[in-house]
Simulated scan of single mutants.
Amino acid sequence: MPDRKTDIAAIGLGGNVGNPRRTMARALKLLDARDDITIRTVSRLYRTPPWGKTDQEWFHNACALVETTLDPHELLKVCLEIELQLDRVRTDRWGPRTIDLDVLLHGDFLSDHADLTVPHPRMTERAFVMVPLADIAPQAVINLQSVADWSSEVDSEGIEALSKSGDWWREPEQGA
């Protein structure tokens, strides 16, 4: 079997039900345990106000860069399987959730299909994505503008870093 091309993908993580820090750390460990995905770097962990549906608990958010031989659709499938494994229930759009894993970027792949849109739609409008993504990929370009520039343009009021580094997911379990 020929070697598959390796791409760098960005994954957004979030949650606000249960212990989001623990659940997000478990999701990263499940991704990293696979032969076809390696975690390269993870952003700091952030506490962020809810977006879209604002009458709910605040979220924890982070982003990760992964090296993968999976194509974008396969990576999305793995993310959805991990969400199910970690008790994600889809009810309200933008509503409470134990975990959310989004494929934000995948190499130079571009898609505007209903099943998978990459770059992720509206990500440049969302501080809970752009702030953590700027931690790990400030020079990445989305729609002809760097992540660092997008991050500086979004309203990041209320966003608070909960960790000093991106190693929070490897640390021994603590309270959320």
Score class of each variant (00 low, 15 high):
127 A>F: 06
171 E>Y: 09
102 D>H: 14
21 R>D: 03
127 A>Q: 03
82 I>T: 01
97 R>S: 14
43 S>A: 04
74 E>P: 00
22 R>E: 14
105 L>S: 03
167 D>V: 00
158 G>E: 01
33 A>Y: 06
25 A>R: 00
38 T>C: 11
62 A>N: 02
69 T>H: 09
96 P>V: 03
122 R>D: 08
71 D>Y: 01
142 I>D: 08
168 W>Y: 00
143 N>K: 12
71 D>E: 00
147 V>D: 13
37 I>H: 04
158 G>R: 11
74 E>G: 02
144 L>N: 14
70 L>F: 02
149 D>V: 09
79 C>Q: 03
65 L>A: 06
175 G>S: 14
123 M>G: 05
163 S>L: 04
160 E>A: 14
175 G>R: 14
114 A>K: 11
12 G>L: 14
37 I>Q: 02
173 E>L: 09
25 A>Q: 01
38 T>W: 14
69 T>Q: 13
103 V>P: 15
159 I>D: 10
16 N>G: 12
141 V>I: 15
32 D>T: 06
155 D>R: 05
153 E>D: 04
53 K>H: 11
24 M>G: 08
14 G>P: 03
54 T>I: 15
165 S>D: 02
17 V>P: 02
26 R>V: 04
8 I>K: 10
60 H>A: 11
156 S>Q: 14
31 L>S: 03
76 L>I: 01
159 I>Y: 14
82 I>E: 00
32 D>Y: 05
160 E>I: 13
58 W>C: 05
18 G>L: 11
160 E>T: 15
107 G>L: 01
29 K>Q: 15
151 S>P: 06
29 K>I: 04
29 K>C: 10
153 E>S: 12
89 V>Y: 05
124 T>E: 13
167 D>E: 01
58 W>Q: 12
158 G>W: 09
43 S>I: 04
113 H>G: 07
170 R>C: 03
54 T>R: 06
85 Q>N: 07
97 R>F: 15
172 P>Y: 10
